[in-house]
Amino acid sequence: MRRAALLALSLLITTLTTLTTVTPAFAADPQWTLAPRGEGRPYFYLEGSPGTVLQDTLSLTNPGAKPVTVRLRGAQGYNTAEGSFAVRPTADNWITPLVTSAKVPAHTRADIPFSITVPPGAQPGDHPAAVVATAAGREVGVRIQLRLSGPTLSALTVEDVSVDKGAGLIRYTLVNRGNTTLTPRLAVRADGILGRVLNRPARTLPLELLPSQRVKRTEKWPGTPLLDSVDVILTATADDATPAQGTASATFVPWGLLAGAGLLVAGAAGGATWYVRRRRRTPDQPQAPERELAETGAAT
C-alpha cells in the first residue's frame, strides 16, 4: 500500500508538472511595422531631376489585436558624429505623405502613398532622407535614397589625424566633400626611424558617408613602439573619388624607464662622490711601528 501511495503521488506530481509546462502564456501583441510596398525592398530608391514630383507607397502593418494610430512625416538624413545614419527631428518639406496621421485597425495593412516635390533649384547628387512613423513613443523609419540628375562629384578628405599614445589609438576625421554617398576604404601605415612599424592594407569601413558630412573615427594601435619617432599616414579611397591622405607625427619615449635609469645614475654618481670625499678626509696612517723596529735593530 505504501508503494502504491508513493506511485500515485509520483504520477500526480508528474501530471501537475506537465500541465504547468504545456499551459501557454499570453503573448504580447506583435508590434506594427513600416516598409516599402512590395516584396524585397528594404528602402526606397528614387531618381529624378530638379522641379519634378516623385511618388511611391509605404505599407503600415498592424498585426496586433488593437488598433494603432500612427503619425507620419518625412525627414532629412545625416551622419551622427560616429557615422551612424540618423534623421532630423523636423519634417522635410520635400516629402509629403498622403495623410500625416493614420489609424490602422487590428490585423490590417494600410498602404499610404507619399510624394517628393523637388525644388527647381535643387543641387544634383544624393539627397538622403526617410519616411518616419511614430506611435506610442515608438519611432520607425524607412530610408529614401534620392538621386537628382546632373553633374556628380565624389570627393573625400582625411583631416585632424592625431596619435593618442595613452589610449593606443589613431584619431582622424573623414569628410565627404562631394554630392554622392560614399563607402570609404582605409589603409594605415606608420614609418619609424628604423623602418615601417605599422602596415594595414585598405579595408572597407562599416560606414555610409553622406554628402557634406564629417565623421570622427579611430583606429586601434596596440603594441606601439617603445622608443621611436614615427610618421603616421592614413589613405582613404572610395569609388570614383581621388585617394586622400592625412598624416601625423608622434614620438614615443619610455619616460618611466628613463626616469628610473636617471635615478640609478644619480645614485651611483652620488655614491662615488661620497666615497671620494671620505677618502680625502681620512688621514694617512703613521708608519711609527716600522721606524721603531728599524731603530731597535740598529741599537742591537
Rank of each mutant, 00 (worst) to 15 (best):
D56H: 03
A35N: 03
V230Y: 04
A28P: 06
L72H: 08
R171A: 11
Q123W: 00
E290C: 06
P254S: 06
S162H: 05
T183S: 11
V87N: 06
Q31K: 04
I170E: 01
R217G: 07
A122M: 02
A272W: 12
D240H: 14
G195M: 12
V132R: 05
A250N: 04
G64H: 04
G141S: 10
G270F: 05
R37Y: 08
T69N: 06
T180F: 00
A136T: 11
Y275Q: 13
R138G: 04
P211W: 01
R214G: 10
N176A: 03
R88I: 05
V142T: 09
R3H: 11
E39K: 09
L186C: 01
W274H: 04
P63R: 05
E219I: 09
T218P: 00
A299H: 12
T33A: 12
A236G: 02
W255S: 12
D231G: 09
P105Y: 01
R171T: 11
G83E: 00
D160A: 14
D228K: 04
P89L: 08
T157C: 01
V188N: 05
G297E: 13
V70H: 05
L9W: 10
Q55R: 15
R171L: 14
A5S: 08
L58H: 07
R147F: 05
T14Y: 10
R278W: 13
S59Q: 13
G271H: 06
L264Q: 08
L264H: 07
F252R: 07
R185T: 08
L263K: 10
Q145I: 11
P63S: 05
I116L: 15
T181F: 03
P105L: 05
G64N: 01
R171E: 10
G77Y: 01
Q285L: 15
V140T: 13
R2L: 14
L148T: 02
P201I: 08
T18P: 00
L146P: 01
L264G: 10
L72I: 11
T80Y: 08
Q123L: 04
T273W: 12
G48A: 06
A250T: 03
Y78N: 12
E159M: 07
E39Q: 12
Q287R: 12
A4R: 14
A268C: 03
A202R: 02
V230L: 02
A122G: 00
T152N: 09
T20M: 11
Q245E: 07
R217S: 11
L156V: 03
A65L: 08
T296A: 13
R171I: 06
K165T: 14
R200S: 11
G267V: 03
P120N: 07
G51C: 01
L58K: 07
L226I: 09
L198V: 09
L226W: 10
A35G: 05
